[in-house]
Amino acid sequence: MSQENNTPDFVGRSGIRSAREQSIKWLLFGCAALSVAVTTAIVATLLFDAIDFFLEVSPMAFFFGTTWSPTIDQAFGVVPLVAGTLFVTVLSACIAIPVGVASATYLSEYASRKTRSIIKPALEILAGIPTVVYGYFALVYLTPALEWLGLPLSTFNALSASIMIGIMIIPMVSSLSEDAMSAVPDSLRQAGYGMGATKLEVSTGVVIPAAASGIFSSFILALSRAIGETMIVVVAAGMRPRLVPSPFESLEVMTAAMVQLVTTDIAGGSTAYRAMFAIGITLFAITFAMNLASTFVASRYREEYQ
């Protein structure tokens, strides 16, 4: 009898087991790494066609040109589109930021557990409604309603689209700001009450300043969402590039210009087709930078209290 047979084999097929474990680990790592591949693919595909575009149209003419008329005049100045985007974003922020912060304050400081358990799913549904539906609401119900109030609106206008975008991003501002406010330690609130402050003074004087960086990062994220919003503006704000936008008239934003280019019949390799990718990479760069900024700001507030 050989010696080995007497020692019980506790480890089992350790070789096979660890091979199996390793293979699973790398398989899952592959899944995680795919996200990097997606980013790379976005950048690569956009750059590929955008570079071709910039070989035909100089970047100066693109970034500083003041006329956008890609199919008729071959004019590729992106300034009117950026102006339109900024205009819509600022208008919608005027709604979403005050409403979102007030709602976050209510949810975090005033609402009972039960109220919160009803309101939060409702806000989630608000965030989940398809944007084309919001666009439909703006075009078919909101614009006539505002006209009835006496505003001189054209059929497609920036105002009702911006209001709808504002409503769409309220849940984003409120839920992220609420997270930030809930993360403020209770000891700060207690200290405020100990000084004789009222609940109003604690909310506005202690909690909101303490959560400021988190709230601010939610603003950046929400604005980046408003910049990239497509269907609401495509449906309700029209496709008319303007250097000086007016809330009562139609205008064109960057995303709408891309949709317009892809839905009209333009030839696959034409300059206008590539202009779409040039706008795309500009949009991607702006939103990516804003998201990074938001992550940076948010990570600062985390350092303060945890």
Partner: peptide, 19 residues
């Protein structure tokens, strides 16, 4: 990867369409 995923969640849907 984690930062990248957080940022991908904020990329506009129309850019995914272009991709």
């Amino acid at each position: 990867i984690e930062i990248n995923i957080a940022n991908l969640a904020g990329v506009p849907s129309v850019v995914y369409g272009l991709l």
